[in-house]
Write a protein that binds this DNA or RNA. Structure first.
Ligand SMILES: Nc1ncnc2c1ncn2[C@@H]1O[C@H](COP(=O)(O)OP(=O)(O)OP(=O)(O)O)[C@@H](O)[C@H]1O
Length: 1109
DNA sequence: ACAGGTACAATTTTT
DNA sequence: TTGTACCTGT
């Protein structure tokens, strides 16, 4: 009783009505963002369990993402207790379907151990046959051209991607190949007919493969429930969140779950539909009204999430959609701070602004890193922002889909696991069979598969009984591989954990040796460690997972245990999870989130940044139809309405892409300028104590202690009021004020005129002089950073990297790779740290086999001795030892003809840039420390700011207190986020807080940890030079295998105990292998892990690299 | 079979 | 600028 009162108490009357509405009446809750839909849904579930005595295992709740499912489970746990909550059948449509399919596979003729196909594997199915298809298409096109038709038969529209999408769309609509063919014949559409063939072949291959793709999970699920409705015998009620984004099959599933009783509750918002591109149909809302007679609708109108200002701005955007029914959303919250709409001259300034502003706001409002989110239109946009945050030392996390699982090394290990689970899974066979190299090329593989098909067996089964036409060596290798698989399978049967299986696979198939043929093997091994961590977290999670109730007696139970083997669960989860970090521990160090709008749906943050509010991004340039444009607008509005207290939107005049700067216009979604005055602040916001009070209220947090905040701001040098100069990259605020003064003041005077910030680039004629000054200032800043590092080095020679000063310029690029970016363990979450292109993205000659971390250098290229000190040289000096380990990755350059090769090319380029930098220095040049060559501004960047750096800047660069925020004058506490932790780290390391940057920099030196092919090169260049003494990144030991706890519980406890930024020590302890091991593991699990996870090169690793492997 | 070089292409959203 | 598909030579 009292409990019920409790949960109803926190609801509005309307919400209460929704919660307590008769469960037997179908219910639609339609409401705008932040109106508490999800809260109502959750509470309603609890209510029905508590008040209507429906057992939780009889309730199914479907969300759109795993994240949302987790969130809901947590909230339910709070309402009902974890035990009850965990019994609910809850998850995404996909994951729920998998559970059922697994359980009842035999009912629809599915093998029990079917494998979920990775999208990359799906693509390969099509790709493999593409030449055929393309040929056929050309024939068809010619024919139809002859007949005068030919429209819609353009070859450029017929691509693999299109086919894959089309397959997906067909499945989402519930169309099988036969149905498509029928339509094609009716419509006399040759293209569609060809597609039907392709589709059919695709389906056949999947079937032979014992595999299902994502869409199959839904459509086969639908098939199961249609043909065997009794498997849903117990379902008493289904709840669906974000209903506006369901597609046809999902709608059907909803109906099937609702069953004859039609007990269904859905929530949705037509204005937030953003998944039309994957066949979501808003129409489903109406369809539901039609198909569920007596369906009740409840509208919620009050927004509880955001301030008045944010809501007003969002309304101004959404109301441009004229066809929309206005839902009259309102809020009783305070108006709050104005929404900031800021324009910058280019993308660099935009991202710098965001990074710096996050730092400022965090202190000024006493927030945590995870109170901030930067919401993007598409994933690739994260780079620039990641880089900026990196530079500012902001711990961040990128939500990236399940890219981690697409990395070549991960797919390889998973491939072996898949074959252990189900050796008929041909995609895994193809992936794995020649990695490590077994002397089989594509031709041989095709032959094996073909022969196997002929006798109707899987390739492995075929190979077990016949050596086909393989040569002796190949046949031997195959035998060995199959024996290896059998070994692992036996281990799996005997109950080994997935972690152990992974270790076994790495061992049995000698994957490490395989990886070590390439110079980025360390990061690959790290990623495999990460996969193990993922596996261990999963084991824990699965213990609290719901079971699908079955009719009949309990001997099923035994079967069930066999069914849900850890391996099977792992493979499932690995395919379905969007983010390896999803299972992240709650107490993991907080991070700023970089995410796409789509993944941010349903979530909220105190502070949200929306960059790139520009034409061709919002709406995306490929959006053509009004529906598509509307959806783009929805995306923009969804972003805006994620914000609780502060919303910043930015756009730029010129964006850098594909090596070129392109002019960019503001998004047409923004309201007309005359409305800006009431909606936006176009200048930098001043942070007042009033604002702090409002913030606390909105967030429902304790009042912020003014005194504490003011002190923090003072000590971190954070102004209440800022100007452009404050946001200049890398600079201390005073650096440019003199030169830029008049210019800035002008900009600041511009009242509500949308004044161009001074950081314009040179093509703006009007301000050319000033902008030149400033532009050059910021240009120079990159070199300034270099200078700062080296000047620090000059001041603290004993701490610097051995030999750093004497680096011959021609080899500095190598050195760069030995200088890792400094960062705290928390900031290490960002994927880029410590990795570098030289080894990551260039394909490099295989060196003769290397052992351990001792690099083997080609005789023609001798690295300077300091690069490669013998490991023994350094026990007392971590720096040296670490750089030595790093060196293992460097020898990319160790090739005979440096200039001709990839590595050589890379170096050449760097030298070129260096030359530019030096020339510039010479031009402007009051003497300043020789700019270290490992941090040259990227060429294009320099091009963008046409002029050489200002003298004043360069002279300032000599002033350590300005250039080195952490210098003796400023103190560590400047970077508040690290604070005591950083200090204690320093102390642990025996360094005083006044230790200059380089010290920490070098002590934190570390090998490349995760290699990210897609990361811009200058990222690490800047990162490395940007000294961050108080951020210490744990170093990961590259060479030896980190022992894994065998039992998941141990593993978990280690992870927990080691989580958080305190996983340091590592950075310095050289010989403390023992420590490193345990801590290193935990580090990997916690922060540094997510780094590699979150960023993996889009395709680079997944596809291209797979060849290398 | 495999490695290296060159020309070219192209930039979304996800389970 | 970066990633990759294709072509070449060993
Ligand atoms: N009655 C209420 N009183 C106070 N706060 C509320 C109330 N209802 C919801 N909230 C809060 O408002 C915020 C938004 O709620 P919720 O996420 O449920 O909204 P939503 O409608 O699902 O939003 P969206 O459509 O954007 O996903 C949450 O922080 C929630 O705790």
């Amino acid at each position: 009783m009292s409990r019920r009162a409790t949960y109803l108490d926190v609801l509005s009357d309307r919400q209460k009505e929704a919660v307590t509405s008769d469960p037997s009446v179908p219910l639609q809750i339609l409401a705008g963002p932040g109106s508490g839909k999800t809260r109502v849904l959750t509470t309603r579930i609890a209510h029905i369990i508590e008040h209507h005595y429906v057992p939780p295992q009889d309730i199914c709740a479907v969300t759109f993402t795993n994240k949302a499912a987790k969130e809901m489970k947590d909230r339910l746990g709070n309402l009902l207790g974890d035990e009850l909550a965990s019994k609910l059948i809850m998850g995404t449509f996909h994951s729920v379907c998998v559970r059922y399919l697994r359980r009842f596979s035999e009912l629809i003729g599915l093998p029990k151990n079917f494998i979920i196909l990775d999208p990359d594997d799906c693509a390969k199915v099509i790709k493999r046959r593409w030449p055929q298809y393309a040929e056929k298409f050309r024939e068809l096109a010619q024919e139809s051209a002859g007949e005068g038709g030919g429209e819609g038969m353009k070859e450029e529209d017929f691509k693999e991607k299109w086919c894959l999408n089309e397959i997906s769309r067909s499945k989402a609509k519930g169309l099988e190949p036969r149905a498509v063919r029928k339509i094609a014949i009716e419509e006399k559409d040759p293209k569609k007919a060809l597609f039907a063939d392709i589709y059919e072949e695709y389906e056949n291959e999947l079937k032979d493969n014992h595999s299902l793709d994502f869409d199959d999970l839904l459509s086969r699920g639908m098939e199961l429930f249609k043909t065997n409705p009794h498997v849903l015998f117990n379902i008493k009620h289904i709840f669906i969140d974000e209903f506006q984004d369901t597609n046809h099959v999902q709608y059907t599933l909803a109906e099937l779950f609702a069953g004859v009783n039609k007990n269904i509750t859905i929530v949705g918002d037509p204005d937030q539909s953003i998944y039309g591109w994957r066949s979501a149909e808003i129409e489903n809302l109406n369809k539901m009204m039609r198909n569920f007679s007596g369906c009740k609708q409840i509208f919620l109108e009050e927004n509880y999430r955001s301030t008045g200002s944010i809501l007003a701005a969002a309304s101004a955007v959404i109301s441009q959609d004229v066809n929309r029914i206005n839902k009259g959303l309102f809020t009783n919250r305070a108006k709050g701070e104005a929404v900031v709409l800021k324009r910058f001259s280019n993308d660099d300034h935009e991202s710098n602004f965001i990074a710096k502003e996050i730092k400022r706001l965090k202190v000024a409002y006493a927030l945590r890193w995870d109170d901030f989110a930067v919401l993007l239109r598409y994933n690739a946009q994260s780079r620039g922002f990641e880089k900026a945050m990196q530079t500012e030392g902001i711990p961040n996390r990128i939500l990236n889909g399940h890219k981690f699982f697409q990395r070549a090394e991960i797919m390889l290990v998973i491939g072996y696991l898949q074959l252990v689970e189900n050796e008929a899974f041909g995609s895994a066979f193809r992936r794995v069979v020649n990695a490590p190299k077994r002397g089989l090329g594509e031709k041989s593989i095709d032959r094996i598969v073909a022969s196997a098909n002929n006798i109707g067996a899987s390739p492995i089964k075929y190979l077990r009984q016949s050596r086909g036409d393989l040569n002796t060596k190949q046949a031997q290798e195959m035998k060995k591989m199959i024996e290896g698989l059998d070994t692992v399978r036996a281990s799996a049967k005997s109950g080994s954990s997935v972690m152990d299986l992974i270790d076994l696979i790495v061992h049995v198939f000698e994957l490490k040796a395989h990886f070590m043929k390439e110079d980025d093997w360390e990061s690959r091994m790290e990623n495999i460690d990460e996969l193990k961590t993922f596996a261990s977290k999963l084991t824990l999670k699965n213990e609290s997972t719901y079971e699908i109730p079955t009719q009949g007696d309990s001997d099923d139970e035994i079967e069930e245990v066999v069914m849900d083997t850890p391996l099977r669960m792992f493979l499932e989860e690995a395919m379905l999870s969007t983010d390896a970090d999803e299972t992240a521990d709650k107490d993991e160090s907080p991070k700023v989130l970089l995410s796409t709008v789509h993944q941010a749906k349903g979530l909220e943050w105190p502070v949200v940044f929306i960059p790139t509010l520009e034409m061709d991004i919002y709406p995306f340039f490929r959006s053509k139809t009004p529906e598509q444009i509307d959806e783009e607008r929805h995306a923009a509005v969804v972003s805006m309405t994620r914000a609780q207290a502060l919303l910043y939107s930015t756009h730029v005049e010129s964006r850098f892409a594909h090596g070129k700067s392109r002019a960019s216009e503001i998004s047409p979604f923004l309201p007309p300028k005359h409305k800006w005055r009431e909606l936006f602040l176009v200048t930098y916001p001043i942070i007042t104590s009033n604002a702090r009070i409002t913030m606390a209220k909105i967030l429902d947090r304790p009042e912020i202690d003014e005194k504490v905040v003011l002190e923090a701001m003072a000590s971190a040098n954070i102004p209440h009021e800022t100007t452009d100069e404050y946001y200049l990259p890398y600079s201390a605020p005073t650096t440019y004020s003199q030169s830029g003064g008049s210019y800035f003041s002008r900009s600041n005077k511009g009242k509500d005129e949308y004044a161009l910030p001074p950081m314009m680039d040179s093509f703006d004629g009007g301000f050319s002089k000033a902008s030149t000054l400033v532009g050059s200032a910021s240009t120079f800043s990159s070199s300034t950073v270099s200078a700062s590092t080296s000047s620090t080095a000059d001041r603290q020679p004993r701490r610097q990297l051995p030999g750093a000063n004497s680096v011959p310029s021609s080899t500095t690029s190598s050195l760069s790779t030995t200088l890792p970016l400094i960062s705290s363990s928390s900031s290490s979450s960002s994927p880029s740290i410590g990795s570098f292109r030289a080894t990551s993205s260039r394909k490099i000659n295989n060196l003769s086999s290397r052992t351990g971390s001792t690099p083997v250098f080609n005789s023609t290229f001798k690295p300077p001795s300091f690069i490669n000190p013998p490991p023994s040289a350094s026990p007392a000096n971590p720096t040296a030892s670490i750089s030595s380990t790093k060196t293992a990755s460097v020898p990319s350059h160790s090739r005979s003809s440096a200039a001709a090769t990839a590595g050589g090319r890379g170096r050449g380029r760097q030298n070129q840039i260096t030359a530019v930098a030096r020339r510039r220095a010479a031009l402007t040049g009051p003497p300043r420390p020789d700019p270290p060559k490992w941090a040259p501004p990227r060429q294009s960047e320099s091009d963008r700011y046409k002029l050489p750096p200002m003298k004043s800047t360069s002279s300032k660069s000599a002033d350590p207190s300005i250039l080195l925020p952490d210098g003796p004058g400023t103190g560590l506490d400047r970077f508040v986020d690290v604070g005591s932790e950083g200090l204690s780290i320093m102390k642990t390391l025996g360094l005083s807080s006044s230790t200059p940057p380089t010290t920490a920099a070098s002590s934190a030196s570390q090998p490349s940890i995760r290699t990210n092919q897609s990361r811009p090169q200058n990222l690490e260049e800047h990162g490395q030079t940007r000294s961050r003494p108080n951020r210490i990144k744990p170093s990961l030991t590259p060479t030896y295998l980190i022992p894994q706890p065998t039992n998941p519980e141990t593993a978990a406890s280690i992870i927990v105990s080691g989580s958080g930024p305190s996983s340091l020590g590592l950075s310095t302890s050289t010989n403390g292998v023992g420590i490193k091991r345990s801590l290193g593991r935990s580090t990997s699990a916690g922060s540094s892990g997510s780094r590699g996870l979150s960023r993996s090169s889009s395709r680079g690793s997944g596809t291209k690299r797979s060849r290398g492997l």
